[in-house]
């Protein structure tokens, strides 16, 4: 079904535009038109459909579910809800404090916050359409693992002693606070009309926020696609030397992007011969370890905790890179 976007691009670029399919510019333009039209069409349909379903999911209920579970289920739920709950990064501090003051352990809250930027419906839709379902499943599994692993490690280090005083107090007082034994929040019962309005607002909101990233991401991906010869990375970097992965993680650090901007670039990097694990490590590092968000967390954490979280993330990304490079021949028959 998605072939119509290939035809659309061929018609626009080769037939109407008169570009030569074998030229660098022609091939870049074709990539750009095909991917942007495909991504925007899929996003509009899918964001609306998903928003209809999750209109009644709010953070109070998510917090209640996580609170009720034992610690180990908690990490999985934290990461899982981090993936599916719509939430803007400017809310991360109130969310952090809301969870903490309800007595949810730091590691579970962080599992939510780690996973949230890596997995969201936009990232999943784009991966699926550009790189296929096998890759998408591996990506989701990795995002969850990074969140759960990071959270468990933080708790086993006793990291809550590096919270700022007021946040630590809120956590300790949680057992006696009126929030501790509150009944389950009522699920919002919405009419179809309210769901439609919610979904429409979500759609406009998300598209307004990410359209620039898509254009930039697909633009860079298209340039790589047309102007860098196939297999360039494997010819020049060698395929799979161990230091490629840490190098990719470090290269991704200063780049601050969201998943939307990076995924179209990943597609090109992989076809140009960069190993899959190395590409994923680069992508995670760009998306999940961003300085602006770290500076925000400073409001509730001491430097020591921030630094610990940062190092845990970097190590996680490197492990992911090495592991996937090792497993790639078995995981991806098609890439």
């Amino acid at each position: 079904m998605l072939e119509i976007f290939t035809w659309l691009a061929s018609w626009l670029v080769y037939d109407l535009g008169g570009f030569d399919p074998n030229s660098k510019l022609g091939s870049s333009l074709h990539f750009f038109v095909e991917d942007t039209s495909k991504i925007f069409a899929l996003l509009v349909v899918m964001i609306y459909a998903i928003a209809l379903l999750r209109a009644s999911l709010n953070l109070e209920r998510v917090r209640y579910y996580i609170q009720q579970k034992n610690r180990f289920a908690g990490y999985g739920l934290g990461a899982g809800f981090g993936a599916i709950t719509p939430f803007c990064s400017c809310s991360s501090i109130p969310l952090f404090l809301g969870f903490t003051s309800a007595g949810i352990p730091l590691g579970i809250t962080m599992a939510f916050l780690f996973t949230s930027p890596i997995i969201n419906e936009v990232a999943v839709i784009m991966l699926w359409s550009l790189l296929g379902w096998e890759f998408t499943l591996v990506y989701i599994a990795i995002g969850m693992t990074v969140g759960i692993g990071g959270g468990i490690l933080l708790d086993s280090l006793g990291a809550e002693r590096w919270l700022k005083d007021f946040a630590a107090k809120a956590y300790q007082n949680a057992a006696t606070s009126p929030q501790a034994n509150r009944p389950a929040p009522e699920p919002a019962s919405l009419t179809l009309r309210e769901r439609h309005e919610f979904a429409r607002n979500e759609l406009f909101d998300i598209v307004a926020r990410i359209w620039k990233w898509i254009i930039i991401g697909v633009g860079l991906g298209a340039a790589l696609h047309g102007f860098v010869p196939d297999g360039w990375f494997s010819d020049n970097l060698g395929s799979g030397q161990w230091w490629n992965v840490p190098a990719a993680v470090l290269a991704g650090l200063p780049l601050y992007s969201n998943a939307t901007g990076v995924i179209p670039i990943m597609e090109s990097l992989i076809t140009k011969g960069l190993p899959v694990g190395t590409t994923l490590a680069f992508c995670m590092s760009t998306v999940a370890a961003s300085f602006p968000e770290f500076i925000m967390l400073k409001q509730v954490m001491l430097w020591r905790l921030l630094a610990t979280i940062f190092i845990i993330l970097l190590i996680n990304f490197m492990l992911v890179g090495w592991l996937i490079n090792l497993l790639a021949p078995w995981l991806f028959s098609s890439l």
């Binding site: 709010n58 939430f87 809310s91 501090i93 109130p94 809301g98």
Partner: peptide
């Protein structure tokens, strides 16, 4: 101020 926001028990702003 995150402390005041916490006192209002607000999780999404």
């Amino acid at each position: 101020d995150p402390q005041i926001i916490m006192q209002y028990q607000v999780m999404s702003t």
